[in-house]
Design a protein around this nucleic acid. Sequence first.
DNA 1: TATTGTTATACTCTATAACTATA
DNA 2: TATAGTTATAGAGTATAACAATA
Lengths: 181, 181
Amino acid sequence: MAQPSRARSPRAAPTPAPTRPVSRDPVLRVLAGGAVRLGRLEDTLGFHLRLAQEASFAAFSRRAGTSGLRPGHFAALVVIDGNPGLSQTALGGAVGRDKSTLTPTLRDLERRGLVRRERAEGDRRSYALTLTEAGRAALGALTGHAAAHDAALDALVGEGNRAAFLATLRRLIAGLGGEGR
Amino acid sequence: MAQPSRARSPRAAPTPAPTRPVSRDPVLRVLAGGAVRLGRLEDTLGFHLRLAQEASFAAFSRRAGTSGLRPGHFAALVVIDGNPGLSQTALGGAVGRDKSTLTPTLRDLERRGLVRRERAEGDRRSYALTLTEAGRAALGALTGHAAAHDAALDALVGEGNRAAFLATLRRLIAGLGGEGR
DNA sequence: TATTGTTATACTCTATAACTATA
DNA sequence: TATAGTTATAGAGTATAACAATA
């Protein structure tokens, strides 16, 4: 969500609203409870989980937005960094995406000179993925954003609360994961 | 995420894997930590927030999947139910979507006979949205799914934990919402 | 035959811009 | 001029199916 919203063919600068007394952010406005009542959603864990995730995602995008690297790029860089030489299919498995989904992402990362793709020795169908020096630098910068972002989250969650909160999220992830698939 | 995955033009039934010793669910597999290491993502709040939200979303879809009503429909029904007579623009503001985004959703809900759109008395440009009897019934069914879903979440979160967890999510939502927008 | 990666295609969700009808 | 809703268009993200190269 939170589309970067660059105007397609702006025939004139749209003159951003000069003052903004009320937040234009939907998430904030939702919980501020403007005029509209959200009914039973208001006490629902799933709904709040969704809002918190959207807010977190948007906040991260604000920090990292300048690089042109989106979350998908970041995830790929992190996993390649931690597992040099892995294949595209393995990467897809790790991040939960089909290999065809990763093709454009990896082509893009290679074009930017951040990732190297070499035919694997043992199996010449697959690529061995590694980060270049520039890739490590880009990852470092993104990691800085991510760390700042997580520090902001930590501050909101609260020192003494973090471990319990993370443990609860992990229980949800593990407990909800496997039923009908 | 979790595309319903109905085959487009299957020339033969693709024969689902007969045994499935390892979860095919990416979320589960990610945390199970197969062969691939996720590095610094593994202790990150934002990352776990995303996984938990995806898992919650997928679990809800499994429950409600039969109705053909997606989360967007559900949100619209809930808000209309709680605010009968509101306009499409107001609905969009409440759920954080542009009015043009809601056009297909509302056309669909009207076509299914779940929502009534009547030109507002005071202002004949806008529609007054209300639920039909069938709409209330559909909402009731969906609410049943949502309640079951939330009960599952509650069980995973833990009785004594729920209030604190919800409060933490609310702090995140409120605290992250407004910075750069 | 099976698997790796690519391509073609398609679907969902969302947005901006331009338009019509009303205000 | 301004606003409510619709339509046209676009783009990000994801998927399945079919294909070529390799196993």
